[in-house]
């Protein structure tokens, strides 16, 4: 089968497009598992929002809508840039030219930086909340919510869900930033960067997914009041 010294695709596949198809399909299946992963938590959120609507309203008021909005904008811009970078790679692959490399790498770098900005904003918000004693646990400032069920501990549930879900999202962001940074560096250095196209597509898909998760988290925690 692939006896050439420089094969364009790995052994079980018939052609490069076959391999590309498999990579993308595999990532989609992976994203389905991620949906269920976050889905389990969203079920938890829905249950407690339904049981303690007051507590969730109070909890949401302590969050900064504008900061959350800015974070959303930052993420969406990053998604746009990575989509453009991926498009450039595909075109470069078709034209067999190398000119796309610089522009693609530049866009990937900005995307990764925007991810870092997002995390900066998010961790700043965490810092503020923890400073106000709103991190769940024995330190939780439940005296602020004494008129809520379970002498304020219902509000603790809001923050528990908030930290769990946004924390899990932040973890995915860190992975995403490392991946985007990594693929940018790899494209910069590779002798045949067009062969990283599959990897870039897969990473871009992952990045879009992580953005979409935030598109759900933002209204759940910041906008539903």
């Amino acid at each position: 089968m692939s006896s050439t010294s420089n094969p364009t695709h790995l052994i079980p596949y018939d052609s490069p497009s076959h391999q590309r198809h498999a990579a993308i399909f595999g990532l989609w299946v992976f994203l389905v598992t991620e949906i269920l992963f976050f889905g389990g938590m969203i079920v938890g959120y829905v249950v407690y929002h339904y049981e303690y609507p007051e507590a969730f309203r109070e909890g949401s008021r302590t969050l900064n809508v504008w900061a959350g909005g800015a974070m959303t904008a930052v993420l969406l811009l990053g998604s746009l840039l990575i989509a453009v970078a991926e498009h450039l790679t595909e075109e470069g692959d078709r034209d067999n030219s190398q000119s796309w490399r610089g522009t693609a790498v530049w866009r990937l770098a900005v995307t990764a930086c925007l991810g870092v900005v997002f995390l900066g904003l998010e961790f700043y918000e965490y810092h503020e909340l923890i400073g106000e004693g709103l991190f769940p646990g024995s330190q939780f400032a439940r005296q602020r919510f004494t008129d809520l069920p379970y002498s304020g501990r219902a509000a603790e549930l809001f923050f528990l869900m908030f930290f769990c879900m946004t924390g899990l999202h932040a973890f995915h962001m860190i992975v995403g930033i490392l991946l985007v940074g990594g693929i940018g560096t790899a494209i910069q250095r590779a002798r045949q960067p067009e062969r990283l196209g599959n990897t870039l597509t897969v990473i871009a898909l992952y990045w879009h997914f992580v953005d979409i998760v935030w598109i759900f988290l933002y209204p759940l925690f910041y906008l539903v009041r």
């Binding site: 938890g44 407690y48 049981e51 303690y52 379970y150 501990r153 603790e156 549930l157 923050f159 528990l160």
Partner: peptide, 14 residues
């Protein structure tokens, strides 16, 4: 690890 009562009925969990 953190306390809080996601599943503890005594403090509001289910």
């Amino acid at each position: 690890i953190f306390g809080g009562g996601i599943f503890d009925p005594a403090i509001g969990g289910d």
